[in-house]
């Protein structure tokens, strides 16, 4: 019932346009992740949805209600903040119950909902503690608990895991995924971490400079990036972009669209071969051994750097000359503006 619709949303701070016309549809129960480099406007967009910032132009519908001029607390959304924003002078119980109290939910009902949420998040033992007595992960859980008790139509997460250490982040990530599965409520999640985006999202929205670059499932973004920015933003290590002429050298099977200017190929799709004619050649300038794979930095004859991952235990030695090949269907072509060119092979797939 609670889909969201953003129509031509804009936000100006003085003369600075932070959001420049965003159109987006979010379906009921979807887990949507806003991702992009810092300053792309992803947090601002979330804050516009929450109502903490005023929308300069455009329309925002939550459910079938236009909410541009509706107070944050009346939009049916709950937010989990980056810093958790737990009230330091209130216990965990009172933190979680605060919104209900403001909304004059009777005490009995309030207790029931707090206990229910606490049970879900394994917070039972911590209810009478103060936020300063909790660990980072526990605070995070309380922040989520506070959002749950209000029974919102939409959850908003503003980089909720960025203050946790690496191990805890992976753990909380899976807990949030599990939470979404159980509640199947619409969730919007902002992050700059593309791994978080890929693992959590039903739908990823890639933003840059206040505009949407692409909307799609993680797989779509990885396999069919709409442009060079998305291609390089999604996937780690990032995609290599070479002049289009190299396509024929990587694989003779490549069909290069006429207007293609560059060709992109992910490091994990390049294969190391012996240096010989008709193959992209380069010198290994750096080997980064990480255990499972080895990341090779290869300097091409024109001076460009090309990344290659190799799971071969017999990685080539530093300074040696190697050749690179790739499968035709793993190549991405972009025109002079960086937009995706449909490779000829795509036609059959679709």
């Amino acid at each position: 019932m609670t889909s969201l619709l953003l129509k031509g949303i804009e936000k100006h701070f003085g003369s600075v346009n932070v959001i420049r016309g965003v159109d987006l549809r979010i379906d009921d129960g979807e887990f949507v992740v806003f991702v992009g480099p810092s300053g792309c406007g992803k947090s601002t967009l979330l804050r516009l949805i929450s109502g903490l910032e005023h929308i300069s132009d455009g329309e925002l519908m939550i459910g079938d209600r236009l909410v541009n001029e509706v107070q944050p607390s009346e939009r049916g959304v709950a937010m989990v903040f980056q810093s958790y924003a737990l009230y330091p002078h209130l216990t965990v119980r009172d933190n979680m119950g605060f919104g209900l109290k403001v909304r004059k939910v009777p005490a009995g009902e309030r207790q029931r909902r707090i206990n229910e949420a606490a049970a879900t998040l394994k917070l039972d033992a911590l209810l009478d503690r103060y936020p300063r007595e909790l660990s980072g992960g526990q605070r995070q859980r309380v922040a989520i608990g506070r959002a749950i008790v209000g029974n919102p139509d939409v959850f908003l997460f503003d980089e909720p895991l960025s203050n946790l250490d690496a191990e805890l982040r992976v753990h909380m990530r899976s807990e949030i995924a599990a939470l979404h599965k159980r509640l199947s409520t619409t969730m919007i999640y902002v992050t700059h971490d593309q791994i978080e985006a890929m693992t959590l999202a039903d739908k990823i929205v890639v933003l840059r400079d206040g505009r949407i670059e692409q909307v799609g499932s993680p797989r779509e973004l990885y396999e069919r990036p709409a442009n060079m920015f998305v291609a390089q933003f999604i996937g780690s290590p990032k995609m290599n972009v070479l002049p289009a002429a190299n396509a024929q050298l990587l694989t003779p099977a490549a069909v290069v669209p006429a207007s293609a200017e560059s060709v992109g190929v992910r490091p994990e799709h390049l294969k190391v071969s012996k240096a010989q004619d008709g193959i992209v050649r380069g010198k290994v300038s750096l080997c980064e051994y990480t255990g499972a794979i080895t990341l090779l930095h290869v300097t091409l004859p024109d001076g460009q750097l090309c990344l290659v991952t190799s799971d071969d235990h017999m990685a080539p030695s530093l300074g040696s000359e190697i050749g690179l090949t790739a499968q035709a269907e793993k190549l991405h072509f972009f025109d002079h503006q960086g937009r995706r060119e449909k490779p000829v092979s795509d036609v059959g797939v679709q």
Binding site: L5, L6, K7, D23, R25, E59, M61, L66, N68
Partner: peptide, 8 residues
Amino acid sequence: IHNLKTTR
């Protein structure tokens, strides 16, 4: 999106 009616 633009086909949907709003009730501003």
